[in-house]
């Protein structure tokens, strides 16, 4: 009887050791890196970089600001000439489309589509952190100048 229990205990111990080592291995694998080098991400970066040349002025003037959800939004277009407003609408819409695609693409590149929300939150924080002084940032209380 005792020997029987001892074998089970040994087997259980072995199994536990295997479990722990496999979890450690999976942890190491999961934490290895975060994939952003895909053709999709590169294409989106290219589009967004080109668009930024046009958007930068509007960030500075305050016509466009950074939102809390990792997007950009119209803040105050009253100072913008009527003819230019269509351009801004189009720029903001296109930028947000690219940003949504970027977050989804990064999640997909890492084989975790469910990470999209967390990726978006991470980006939202980092866009704000990297924003130049004078740019407008939206938080719970509304627009705030950085």
């Amino acid at each position: 009887m005792k020997t029987c229990e001892a074998t089970y205990a040994k087997a259980l111990l072995k199994f536990a050791a295997l479990l722990v080592s496999s979890i450690a291995a999976m942890n190491a694998f999961a934490a290895a890196d975060f994939e952003i080098d895909t053709p999709g991400v590169a294409a989106l970066k290219q589009l967004m970089r080109a668009r930024h040349a046009q958007l930068a002025g509007y960030y500075t003037s305050g016509a466009v600001g950074l939102t809390a959800d990792g997007m950009i939004g119209l803040r105050d277009v009253s100072a913008v000439p009527q003819a230019e407003r269509y351009t801004i609408f189009a720029l903001v819409a296109a930028e947000n489309q690219n940003r949504n695609a970027l977050y989804a693409e990064i999640a997909r590149a890492n084989s975790h589509p469910e990470w999209e929300g967390e990726i978006r939150n991470t980006f939202a924080r980092r866009w704000v952190q990297n924003a130049r002084t004078g740019w407008w940032i939206q938080d719970d209380d509304g627009w705030e100048r950085r």
Binding site: A31, D33, F34, I36, V41, K45, M48, R49, H52, L102, I106, W115, E118, I119, T122, F123, R125, R126, W127, N130
Partner: peptide
């Protein structure tokens, strides 16, 4: 890692 990756992309875009 995601934060670092985000910073890298933001650096390139901006």
């Amino acid at each position: 890692a995601a934060e670092k990756a985000a910073d890298k992309i933001i650096d390139e875009v901006w």
